[in-house]
Design a protein around this nucleic acid. Structure first.
Length: 285
DNA sequence: CATCAACCCTGAGAGC
DNA sequence: TGCTCTCAGGGTTGAT
């Protein structure tokens, strides 16, 4: 569930600090705890624990749905997948004793300072990496949808290169980075495009509409600090502004037709049958 | 190349 | 109340 806006919200908190913790930048790793070995994608957990010690966090970034932490040597990268959080919190109580971890903390960086960074992940799908070259993990990602250089013309050309159902294509991180199920449904609704349309049948004006819809939807999500659907993600408000996602059977906010739910690319898919007209049969998969 | 099933997981919610 | 079953979702892998 954490998609671009949720990850952006987490990254901003870590980057800037909050009333309850300082910014992450500058802290130096003293020790590493791994409570679920499969959370470590690369290298192996023991090597990860060794190589991170003594490393300083130099920056806090987001790329697609990835959290990216350049270190004094190499890069620490994390992906939350279905559920999860990255928390900065105190690691010692008032007597200097180590505070216990929370139930779903999978990988924890303890700093030389009294703080720690906890990667929590209920469903255990999340992964972390330590790599020398960040492109080893991030290299195949599509463009950042909110980048200034990502244009409607570019999106149109990208869509032309594929003959795929538009929804799974938008969720393909190699095509464009950061959209998940929620923001894809909301973007397609806003652009008035049916989720089963073939990508190369979209006109230039439809591509332009989709480009604007994706950016507006993501920006709205960021403005609301993401969507708190999953019990693990807290503080977001965007779930109160969904127009179709999880609104099956309710009235479309545009035309008051009944919002439909179907399955596209193995994902629950919500849309308005009137505002998002179905493609011709010959265009379907 | 495009599609799809299976897989990795847990907790919520439905049904009994 | 408490058990069992189904579902949700991001991304990878292997088959068609």
């Amino acid at each position: 569930m954490p998609e671009l806006p949720e990850v952006e919200t987490i990254i901003t908190r870590l980057k800037q600090g909050t009333s309850s913790h300082p910014p992450l930048e500058g802290h130096v790793v003293e020790s590493v705890q791994v409570t679920w070995a499969r959370s470590v994608s690369k290298p192996d957990p023991v090597s990860l624990q060794k190589v991170l010690i003594g490393q300083q966090v130099l920056d806090v970034r987001r790329r697609g749905k990835f959290l990216h932490f350049p270190l004094s040597q190499g890069h620490f990268i994390a992906h939350l997948r279905m559920s999860g959080d990255m928390r900065m919190e105190p690691r010692l109580d008032s007597t200097g004793k180590a505070l216990p971890l929370q139930a779903y903390d999978r990988v924890v960086l303890n700093f030389e300072s009294p703080w720690r960074l906890a990667f929590s992940n209920i469903r255990k799908f999340g992964r972390v990496w330590y790599v020398t070259d960040p492109l080893e993990v991030l290299g195949d990602l599509g463009p950042e949808p909110l980048s200034e250089t990502f244009s409607a013309d570019q999106l149109f050309l990208m869509l032309q290169r594929h003959n795929r159902q538009i929804k799974p294509l938008l969720m393909d991180q190699h095509f464009i980075a950061g959209l998940g199920n929620i923001y894809t449904d909301e973007s397609l609704f806003r652009a008035k495009i049916h989720p089963l349309r073939r990508s190369n049948t979209l006109s230039e004006s439809e591509a332009k509409r989709l480009h604007a819809a994706i950016r507006e939807t993501l920006q709205d999500g960021i403005r609301k600090n993401g969507a708190s659907l999953d019990w693990i993600y807290r503080g977001g408000d965007f779930q109160n502004y969904f127009q179709v996602y999880q609104r099956t059977g309710e009235n479309c906010p545009n035309c008051s037709a009944t919002i439909q739910k179907t399955v596209v690319g193995q994902r629950g898919t919500h849309y308005c049958p009137t505002c998002q007209p179905a493609p011709e049969m010959s265009n379907k998969g």
